[in-house]
Amino acid sequence: MESGNLRCGRRLITSETGRGEVVKIEGRISFLGEVNPKEGKLYDGRSIKGKVLIAEGAKGSTVGAYVIYALKYYGNQPLAIIFEEETDPIVVSGCVMAGITHGDMFGKLDLRDGDVVDVWEEDGKLCLGISKTPP
């Protein structure tokens, strides 16, 4: 994604919007087992608190919804959860419970950890635009 470019996907839940740093996961994320909600970190140590979490999609246990809710409970929720492909019911119910902005079907996103993006809602879609200004 070039500077100034924007990409929109399906808007599922809009809560917070604004500017955040990207944390990118290659492949699908399982919230149960791969996310520590108490620390707000992925199991590889990267923090997701206040970040724009981007992954291909989701996998794993139905308890995942409670893990997403737990992120919010401990104040460690990401700004938004963005999936390149289609989401799943577990993540949707978790994001509704936690009030976390969530969109899917963005297509392949050429973004890296540390990129700064704006997240906003437009015409019923959820949009991402790369920003040069730090969050």
Partner: peptide, 16 residues
Amino acid sequence: ASGVSYGTIGEPGLHW
């Protein structure tokens, strides 16, 4: 409803 064991849902689940 599943997710009734405190071991599975923890403090956040109880809170919800």
